[in-house]
Design a binder for these strands. Sequence first.
DNA 1: TGGTATAACATGGTAATTTATGGGATTCAA
DNA 2: TTGAATCCCATAAATTACCATGTTATACCA
Lengths: 155, 155
Amino acid sequence: MRKIFLFMDTIFNKVDAKGRVSLPSDYRAIVKELSTEIVCYRSLSAPCIEGCLEDTLDKLATDIENATDFFSETQDNLTNLIFGDARRFAFDSTGRIMLSEKLLKHAQITDAAVFVGKGRKFQIWNPQNWEKEEARIRAEVMKNRPTLKTAKEAE
Amino acid sequence: MRKIFLFMDTIFNKVDAKGRVSLPSDYRAIVKELSTEIVCYRSLSAPCIEGCLEDTLDKLATDIENATDFFSETQDNLTNLIFGDARRFAFDSTGRIMLSEKLLKHAQITDAAVFVGKGRKFQIWNPQNWEKEEARIRAEVMKNRPTLKTAKEAE
DNA sequence: TGGTATAACATGGTAATTTATGGGATTCAA
DNA sequence: TTGAATCCCATAAATTACCATGTTATACCA
């Protein structure tokens, strides 16, 4: 098992009439090291789908257990939403997954999708929506370039 | 992985019609200690490509996780921008990588590139642009020579 | 020190492989 | 038995691995 798992890059893929999408090969390579499935859920903060390895959600669960006093009730509620929403998705022999109606609707995805790497996680966007979102983020980050230090203080 | 490695020197290489460039052999020697790949992304502050080992980004991912919480908006923005842009680049048996259109365009590279060592990272420049940038940096540094002490205080 | 042999490297071209994607067949369940 | 989900096959395009050559740098020897 490799030590490093990072979902990266921005990949545009088609969604066919059956709702099938190819998981980018880079992503598959990562997933295959650990299992045959990814976990997806509706993002709580944006009109997109979030995906990760089950390990990542497991780590989140552990973090909550170890820092119960740190987490507020609202954050606790958020985790409930995530675990209640999340589902495993396996990919077939050609590397495609079939996303659910619920997820596609939330992300407004019909015939094309963009996979955006986020390190331990990734997101799946409607291409037009992502284009706007990327511009927004870039503008915001450039306006006040964060350091890890200020990022922490800003919270 | 070796503990000590530094990307150094400035190396000029050609870029062929397919976007292939030889990674300088010194750089390859460093990369080979750990894997067969480097990670490249568009610099946030200059018209050039930045490259490093995946370890370096993995460390960044961990730092972001530790500095912000799972639901942080800051974390969202940072990870989208950095990991959404980065990509792995493997080199073939002759030591070449194939840079993407996106990266080449950002750095205005067409038929030649300059690799500039930066310690843990390195940059890839359009030769003319680098010539100007190097002159600019040198002039600036000479004008007001920084020390590590003042650099730290300035934060 | 000078000259030559050797190895390493950058670079051009081509073959082989992988990937994304469409379509059809098969299975399963309501 | 109808609709949906899964599996399998085909293909075009993009990516990657491989081979060949000239050039440069290095090592070796007289």
